[in-house]
Amino acid sequence: MNDPVLTVTGLCKRFPLGRKRFVNAVNHVDLAIAPGETLGMVGESGSGKSTLGRVILRLLEPTEGRILFDGQDITHLPKGRVRPLRRNMQMVFQDPWSALNPRMRIRDLIGEPVRLHMDMARSERDDRTELLARRVNLSTEFLNRTPSNLSGGQLQRVCIARAIATDPKLIVLDEPTSSLDLSVRAGILELLAEIREETKAAMLFISHDLGTVRMISDRIAVLYLGEIVEQGRAEALFETPAHPYTQALLSAHLPSDPAIPVARHVLEGEVPSPIALPAGCKFHTRCPVAIERCRRDVPAALTVPSGQQARCLRIPEGGNILERKEPA
Protein backbone atom coordinates (compact mmCIF):
# COMPACT_ATOMS: atom_id res chain seq x y z
CA MET A 1 0.00 0.00 0.00
CA ASN A 2 1.13 3.51 -0.79
CA ASP A 3 2.18 5.89 1.96
CA PRO A 4 -0.81 7.79 3.25
CA VAL A 5 -1.33 11.30 1.89
CA LEU A 6 -2.69 12.33 5.23
CA THR A 7 -1.93 11.00 8.70
CA VAL A 8 -3.62 12.49 11.74
CA THR A 9 -2.67 11.46 15.28
CA GLY A 10 -4.23 12.50 18.58
CA LEU A 11 -5.92 15.52 17.00
CA CYS A 12 -7.98 17.74 19.34
CA LYS A 13 -9.82 20.98 18.79
CA ARG A 14 -11.25 22.90 21.71
CA PHE A 15 -13.00 26.24 21.37
CA PRO A 16 -12.60 28.40 24.48
CA LEU A 17 -15.81 29.78 26.00
CA GLY A 18 -14.10 31.78 28.76
CA ARG A 19 -13.96 30.97 32.46
CA LYS A 20 -11.97 27.81 31.68
CA ARG A 21 -14.86 26.28 29.80
CA PHE A 22 -14.37 24.73 26.37
CA VAL A 23 -16.40 23.22 23.55
CA ASN A 24 -14.58 19.93 22.99
CA ALA A 25 -15.34 19.65 19.29
CA VAL A 26 -12.70 17.10 18.25
CA ASN A 27 -11.18 14.65 20.72
CA HIS A 28 -8.04 12.56 20.07
CA VAL A 29 -8.73 11.61 16.49
CA ASP A 30 -6.39 9.22 14.65
CA LEU A 31 -6.84 8.58 10.95
CA ALA A 32 -4.94 8.09 7.69
CA ILE A 33 -5.97 8.29 4.04
CA ALA A 34 -4.00 6.72 1.16
CA PRO A 35 -3.85 8.07 -2.41
CA GLY A 36 -6.99 7.18 -4.36
CA GLU A 37 -8.78 6.23 -1.18
CA THR A 38 -12.02 7.73 0.16
CA LEU A 39 -12.62 7.88 3.89
CA GLY A 40 -16.25 8.51 4.77
CA MET A 41 -16.80 10.48 7.97
CA VAL A 42 -20.27 10.05 9.44
CA GLY A 43 -21.85 11.42 12.57
CA GLU A 44 -24.86 13.40 13.72
CA SER A 45 -24.99 17.17 13.86
CA GLY A 46 -22.62 18.49 16.48
CA SER A 47 -20.38 15.43 16.33
CA GLY A 48 -17.46 17.52 15.07
CA LYS A 49 -17.33 16.29 11.47
CA SER A 50 -16.98 19.66 9.83
CA THR A 51 -14.60 20.99 12.49
CA LEU A 52 -12.35 17.98 11.93
CA GLY A 53 -12.31 18.60 8.18
CA ARG A 54 -11.38 22.22 8.70
CA VAL A 55 -8.67 21.52 11.25
CA ILE A 56 -7.09 18.98 8.91
CA LEU A 57 -6.85 21.65 6.20
CA ARG A 58 -5.57 24.18 8.76
CA LEU A 59 -8.62 26.37 8.19
CA LEU A 60 -8.91 26.12 11.98
CA GLU A 61 -5.92 25.81 14.31
CA PRO A 62 -5.48 22.43 16.01
CA THR A 63 -5.32 22.48 19.83
CA GLU A 64 -3.40 19.24 20.22
CA GLY A 65 -2.06 16.40 18.07
CA ARG A 66 -0.27 16.10 14.77
CA ILE A 67 -1.21 16.46 11.11
CA LEU A 68 1.16 14.93 8.55
CA PHE A 69 0.34 15.92 5.00
CA ASP A 70 2.33 14.38 2.16
CA GLY A 71 5.17 13.53 4.56
CA GLN A 72 5.35 17.03 6.02
CA ASP A 73 4.27 18.01 9.52
CA ILE A 74 1.85 20.89 8.95
CA THR A 75 0.41 21.04 12.48
CA HIS A 76 2.09 24.30 13.40
CA LEU A 77 3.34 25.47 10.02
CA PRO A 78 2.99 29.27 9.77
CA LYS A 79 0.04 30.46 7.65
CA GLY A 80 2.30 31.82 4.97
CA ARG A 81 3.82 28.41 4.40
CA VAL A 82 0.48 26.60 4.46
CA ARG A 83 -0.77 28.68 1.59
CA PRO A 84 1.41 27.15 -1.16
CA LEU A 85 0.31 23.72 0.12
CA ARG A 86 -3.33 24.57 -0.57
CA ARG A 87 -2.66 23.69 -4.18
CA ASN A 88 -2.51 20.10 -2.99
CA MET A 89 -5.34 20.18 -0.47
CA GLN A 90 -8.73 21.43 -1.52
CA MET A 91 -12.21 21.58 -0.10
CA VAL A 92 -15.79 21.37 -1.39
CA PHE A 93 -18.46 22.85 0.87
CA GLN A 94 -22.06 21.90 1.54
CA ASP A 95 -23.81 24.93 0.19
CA PRO A 96 -22.64 25.84 -3.31
CA TRP A 97 -24.79 29.00 -3.32
CA SER A 98 -22.72 30.62 -0.59
CA ALA A 99 -19.39 29.04 -1.58
CA LEU A 100 -19.15 31.00 -4.83
CA ASN A 101 -18.80 34.75 -5.26
CA PRO A 102 -22.13 35.74 -6.86
CA ARG A 103 -20.54 38.55 -8.87
CA MET A 104 -17.85 36.50 -10.57
CA ARG A 105 -18.32 34.68 -13.84
CA ILE A 106 -18.09 30.89 -13.78
CA ARG A 107 -15.02 31.16 -16.02
CA ASP A 108 -13.19 33.25 -13.43
CA LEU A 109 -14.37 31.11 -10.54
CA ILE A 110 -12.97 27.95 -12.10
CA GLY A 111 -9.85 29.77 -13.31
CA GLU A 112 -9.14 31.32 -9.88
CA PRO A 113 -7.23 28.42 -8.29
CA VAL A 114 -5.31 27.97 -11.55
CA ARG A 115 -4.34 31.65 -11.47
CA LEU A 116 -3.34 31.52 -7.81
CA HIS A 117 -1.39 28.30 -7.77
CA MET A 118 -0.24 27.46 -11.26
CA ASP A 119 2.12 29.48 -13.36
CA MET A 120 0.19 29.64 -16.60
CA ALA A 121 -0.21 32.11 -19.41
CA ARG A 122 -3.69 33.46 -19.87
CA SER A 123 -4.51 31.42 -22.94
CA GLU A 124 -3.27 28.26 -21.27
CA ARG A 125 -5.42 29.07 -18.27
CA ASP A 126 -8.50 29.56 -20.43
CA ASP A 127 -7.86 26.20 -22.06
CA ARG A 128 -7.57 24.59 -18.67
CA THR A 129 -10.77 26.25 -17.46
CA GLU A 130 -12.69 24.85 -20.42
CA LEU A 131 -11.14 21.45 -19.92
CA LEU A 132 -12.18 21.50 -16.27
CA ALA A 133 -15.72 22.58 -17.12
CA ARG A 134 -16.05 19.74 -19.59
CA ARG A 135 -14.52 17.34 -17.07
CA VAL A 136 -17.29 18.06 -14.57
CA ASN A 137 -19.91 17.79 -17.35
CA LEU A 138 -20.74 21.47 -17.28
CA SER A 139 -21.64 22.95 -20.63
CA THR A 140 -19.07 25.61 -21.65
CA GLU A 141 -21.98 27.93 -22.48
CA PHE A 142 -22.25 28.56 -18.72
CA LEU A 143 -18.71 29.92 -18.47
CA ASN A 144 -19.69 33.52 -19.12
CA ARG A 145 -22.62 33.50 -16.71
CA THR A 146 -22.75 34.21 -12.99
CA PRO A 147 -23.74 31.71 -10.27
CA SER A 148 -27.34 32.96 -10.03
CA ASN A 149 -28.01 31.51 -13.49
CA LEU A 150 -27.06 27.98 -12.47
CA SER A 151 -28.89 25.28 -10.54
CA GLY A 152 -27.57 23.79 -7.30
CA GLY A 153 -26.22 20.70 -9.04
CA GLN A 154 -24.45 22.82 -11.65
CA LEU A 155 -22.97 25.08 -8.98
CA GLN A 156 -21.67 22.07 -7.07
CA ARG A 157 -20.01 20.96 -10.31
CA VAL A 158 -18.34 24.36 -10.47
CA CYS A 159 -17.09 23.88 -6.88
CA ILE A 160 -15.72 20.47 -7.78
CA ALA A 161 -14.02 21.91 -10.87
CA ARG A 162 -12.37 24.52 -8.61
CA ALA A 163 -11.29 21.82 -6.17
CA ILE A 164 -9.67 19.63 -8.83
CA ALA A 165 -8.22 22.54 -10.85
CA THR A 166 -4.75 22.21 -9.36
CA ASP A 167 -4.60 18.39 -9.26
CA PRO A 168 -4.68 18.22 -5.46
CA LYS A 169 -3.57 15.17 -3.50
CA LEU A 170 -6.31 15.56 -0.91
CA ILE A 171 -9.88 16.80 -1.27
CA VAL A 172 -12.07 17.34 1.78
CA LEU A 173 -15.77 17.24 0.86
CA ASP A 174 -18.06 18.58 3.58
CA GLU A 175 -21.61 17.36 2.90
CA PRO A 176 -21.19 18.00 -0.85
CA THR A 177 -24.54 16.46 -1.80
CA SER A 178 -26.75 17.27 1.20
CA SER A 179 -28.41 20.27 -0.38
CA LEU A 180 -29.11 18.52 -3.68
CA ASP A 181 -32.05 16.50 -4.97
CA LEU A 182 -31.70 12.75 -5.18
CA SER A 183 -31.07 12.33 -8.90
CA VAL A 184 -28.67 15.31 -8.96
CA ARG A 185 -26.86 13.81 -5.97
CA ALA A 186 -26.32 10.52 -7.79
CA GLY A 187 -24.71 12.38 -10.71
CA ILE A 188 -22.32 14.24 -8.39
CA LEU A 189 -21.27 11.02 -6.67
CA GLU A 190 -20.63 9.41 -10.01
CA LEU A 191 -18.45 12.35 -11.00
CA LEU A 192 -16.47 12.16 -7.76
CA ALA A 193 -15.84 8.44 -8.26
CA GLU A 194 -14.55 9.09 -11.79
CA ILE A 195 -12.28 11.88 -10.59
CA ARG A 196 -10.86 9.71 -7.83
CA GLU A 197 -10.12 6.99 -10.38
CA GLU A 198 -8.38 9.42 -12.74
CA THR A 199 -6.43 11.59 -10.32
CA LYS A 200 -5.81 9.16 -7.43
CA ALA A 201 -6.64 12.01 -5.07
CA ALA A 202 -7.35 11.03 -1.48
CA MET A 203 -10.82 12.09 -0.36
CA LEU A 204 -12.31 12.79 3.04
CA PHE A 205 -16.07 12.61 2.50
CA ILE A 206 -18.02 14.12 5.38
CA SER A 207 -21.75 13.42 5.55
CA HIS A 208 -24.58 12.58 7.90
CA ASP A 209 -26.26 10.54 5.17
CA LEU A 210 -25.24 6.91 5.63
CA GLY A 211 -26.55 5.79 2.26
CA THR A 212 -24.45 8.36 0.42
CA VAL A 213 -21.34 7.56 2.43
CA ARG A 214 -21.70 3.87 1.74
CA MET A 215 -21.88 4.48 -2.00
CA ILE A 216 -18.61 6.37 -2.24
CA SER A 217 -16.34 5.30 0.62
CA ASP A 218 -13.64 2.64 0.86
CA ARG A 219 -13.38 3.07 4.59
CA ILE A 220 -15.71 4.74 7.08
CA ALA A 221 -15.12 6.47 10.41
CA VAL A 222 -18.01 7.07 12.81
CA LEU A 223 -17.79 10.17 14.94
CA TYR A 224 -19.62 10.65 18.24
CA LEU A 225 -18.97 13.74 20.38
CA GLY A 226 -15.78 14.47 18.46
CA GLU A 227 -14.31 11.01 18.88
CA ILE A 228 -13.98 8.23 16.32
CA VAL A 229 -15.89 5.38 17.97
CA GLU A 230 -15.46 2.99 15.07
CA GLN A 231 -13.37 2.92 11.91
CA GLY A 232 -12.91 0.27 9.23
CA ARG A 233 -13.65 -1.04 5.72
CA ALA A 234 -17.04 0.16 4.51
CA GLU A 235 -18.52 -3.31 3.93
CA ALA A 236 -17.33 -4.67 7.29
CA LEU A 237 -18.64 -1.67 9.17
CA PHE A 238 -22.04 -1.83 7.47
CA GLU A 239 -22.39 -5.61 7.69
CA THR A 240 -21.11 -6.18 11.23
CA PRO A 241 -20.96 -2.88 13.12
CA ALA A 242 -19.12 -3.39 16.40
CA HIS A 243 -19.80 -0.25 18.42
CA PRO A 244 -23.31 0.05 19.92
CA TYR A 245 -23.57 3.61 18.56
CA THR A 246 -22.75 2.46 15.01
CA GLN A 247 -25.34 -0.28 15.35
CA ALA A 248 -28.00 2.19 16.47
CA LEU A 249 -27.03 4.74 13.82
CA LEU A 250 -27.18 2.17 11.02
CA SER A 251 -30.50 0.82 12.26
CA ALA A 252 -32.00 4.31 12.24
CA HIS A 253 -31.14 4.64 8.56
CA LEU A 254 -34.15 3.88 6.40
CA PRO A 255 -33.33 2.06 3.17
CA SER A 256 -35.26 3.48 0.21
CA ASP A 257 -36.86 0.14 -0.47
CA PRO A 258 -39.83 -1.23 1.46
CA ALA A 259 -38.65 -4.77 0.69
CA ILE A 260 -35.57 -4.31 2.89
CA PRO A 261 -36.76 -4.91 6.46
CA VAL A 262 -35.54 -2.59 9.19
CA ALA A 263 -34.87 -3.89 12.67
CA ARG A 264 -34.54 -0.92 14.93
CA HIS A 265 -32.72 0.05 18.05
CA VAL A 266 -34.07 3.45 18.87
CA LEU A 267 -31.70 5.42 21.06
CA GLU A 268 -33.17 7.20 24.02
CA GLY A 269 -32.37 10.81 24.69
CA GLU A 270 -30.13 13.20 22.82
CA VAL A 271 -26.44 13.82 22.35
CA PRO A 272 -24.84 15.30 25.51
CA SER A 273 -23.26 18.74 25.36
CA PRO A 274 -19.67 18.87 24.10
CA ILE A 275 -18.99 21.46 26.81
CA ALA A 276 -19.35 18.92 29.62
CA LEU A 277 -18.33 15.60 28.10
CA PRO A 278 -19.46 12.49 29.97
CA ALA A 279 -16.69 10.73 31.88
CA GLY A 280 -15.58 7.25 30.83
CA CYS A 281 -17.10 6.15 27.54
CA LYS A 282 -18.75 9.23 26.00
CA PHE A 283 -21.63 7.12 24.76
CA HIS A 284 -22.56 5.59 28.10
CA THR A 285 -25.41 8.06 28.76
CA ARG A 286 -27.40 6.67 25.80
CA CYS A 287 -25.92 3.20 25.41
CA PRO A 288 -28.42 0.33 25.88
CA VAL A 289 -25.63 -2.07 26.92
CA ALA A 290 -23.64 0.25 29.21
CA ILE A 291 -22.42 -1.25 32.48
CA GLU A 292 -21.06 0.39 35.60
CA ARG A 293 -17.47 0.32 34.30
CA CYS A 294 -18.46 2.39 31.20
CA ARG A 295 -19.03 5.42 33.45
CA ARG A 296 -15.40 5.36 34.61
CA ASP A 297 -13.08 3.76 32.10
CA VAL A 298 -12.20 5.33 28.77
CA PRO A 299 -12.31 2.58 26.12
CA ALA A 300 -9.27 2.05 23.88
CA ALA A 301 -9.60 1.19 20.19
CA LEU A 302 -9.86 -2.59 19.77
CA THR A 303 -9.69 -4.54 16.54
CA VAL A 304 -12.69 -6.83 16.08
CA PRO A 305 -12.75 -10.08 14.04
CA SER A 306 -14.35 -8.38 11.01
CA GLY A 307 -11.33 -6.06 10.84
CA GLN A 308 -12.55 -2.65 11.98
CA GLN A 309 -11.49 -0.84 15.12
CA ALA A 310 -14.00 0.19 17.75
CA ARG A 311 -13.88 1.86 21.16
CA CYS A 312 -16.14 -0.15 23.44
CA LEU A 313 -15.29 -1.74 26.76
CA ARG A 314 -17.73 -4.56 26.19
CA ILE A 315 -16.12 -5.93 23.04
CA PRO A 316 -13.83 -8.51 24.78
CA GLU A 317 -16.78 -10.23 26.45
CA GLY A 318 -19.08 -9.84 23.44
CA GLY A 319 -21.54 -7.60 25.28
CA ASN A 320 -21.30 -4.87 22.65
CA ILE A 321 -23.93 -6.35 20.33
CA LEU A 322 -27.39 -4.82 20.67
CA GLU A 323 -30.34 -7.14 20.66
CA ARG A 324 -32.31 -6.61 17.48
CA LYS A 325 -35.83 -5.37 18.00
CA GLU A 326 -38.27 -6.22 15.24
CA PRO A 327 -40.35 -3.29 14.02
CA ALA A 328 -43.88 -3.04 15.33
Binding site: A193, R214, D257
Partner: peptide
Protein backbone atom coordinates in the same frame (compact mmCIF):
# COMPACT_ATOMS: atom_id res chain seq x y z
CA UNK B 1 -38.00 4.69 -12.05
CA UNK B 2 -35.35 7.36 -12.26
CA UNK B 3 -36.03 8.57 -8.72
CA UNK B 4 -35.90 5.09 -7.24
CA UNK B 5 -32.84 4.29 -9.37
CA UNK B 6 -31.04 7.23 -7.77
CA UNK B 7 -31.44 5.91 -4.22
CA UNK B 8 -28.37 4.51 -2.48
CA UNK B 9 -29.91 1.03 -2.47
CA UNK B 10 -30.29 0.88 -6.26
CA UNK B 11 -27.68 3.29 -7.56
CA UNK B 12 -24.25 1.90 -8.35
CA UNK B 13 -21.41 4.25 -9.13
CA UNK B 14 -20.38 3.46 -12.69
CA UNK B 15 -23.63 1.55 -13.28
CA UNK B 16 -26.64 2.60 -15.31
CA UNK B 17 -26.76 6.29 -16.18
CA UNK B 18 -29.51 8.41 -14.72
CA UNK B 19 -31.59 10.97 -16.51
CA UNK B 20 -30.53 14.31 -15.11
CA UNK B 21 -31.77 17.64 -16.34
CA UNK B 22 -33.60 20.67 -15.15
Amino acid sequence: RNLIGATPERFRVGGARLLGGQ
